[in-house]
Write a protein that binds this DNA or RNA. Structure first.
Lengths: 91, 91
DNA sequence: TGAGGTTACGCCTATCGTAATAATG
DNA sequence: CATTATTACGATAGGCGTAACCTCA
């Protein structure tokens, strides 16, 4: 599991659509599709229900979304927080 | 910033020693050293004070350590939680 | 001079993008 | 048949390990 995968996952969950998610991420569709698949494989879980209209979260997917947002938020907070203090010792 | 980097960072912070951290991670020393360096570069901050005895956390490093543990904990929780529920839809 | 961290370099795996393929209303 | 996701495949980039190097008490 990587931070990119989590980021892609959240984008797809929000858009309900791999194509739009990919455009938002400024990356090609297949890259997103693959990473979602990999993530599902690693977790041993189906995160989305595939429909010809797009992707809809499964119930494990809904659960994972909450965690995913928390993780990305924690990462952003860590960066912001460290950058704010860190100017003292800038190598 | 990647999850591996965060994991390596925590290991080094706990050991105060790149070599021991690397052994614990079952990975070679330079790999750890490089990732720590990369992390510092990305954050624009020095996370460790280098001494001839090993590595000691700087004060931004101490701050980052708290965040880092939170992130890794959140990732583990997400995995565990989803795996617990996810057996319903196992592809 | 010894203990530890870092840089150089070659290899290998992972990820990307483009193009082709499949599935479904 | 149009829309969307997926697979194939070649190219690129990122990460690792071994070996050589640097630094400081």
């Amino acid at each position: 599991m990587s931070l990119s995968q989590i980021q892609y996952f959240v984008a797809v969950a929000e858009e309900g659509h791999v194509g739009r998610a990919a455009r938002g991420l400024r990356i090609a569709q297949p890259a997103v599709s693959r990473q979602i698949r990999r993530l599902e494989d690693e977790l041993g879980t189906v995160l989305f229900v595939r429909t010809p209209r797009g992707m809809r979260l499964s119930s494990p997917g809904e659960l994972f979304l909450k965690h995913a947002r928390g993780i990305l938020g924690a990462v952003s907070a860590a960066e912001r927080d460290v950058r704010r203090v860190g100017s003292s010792g800038t190598r």
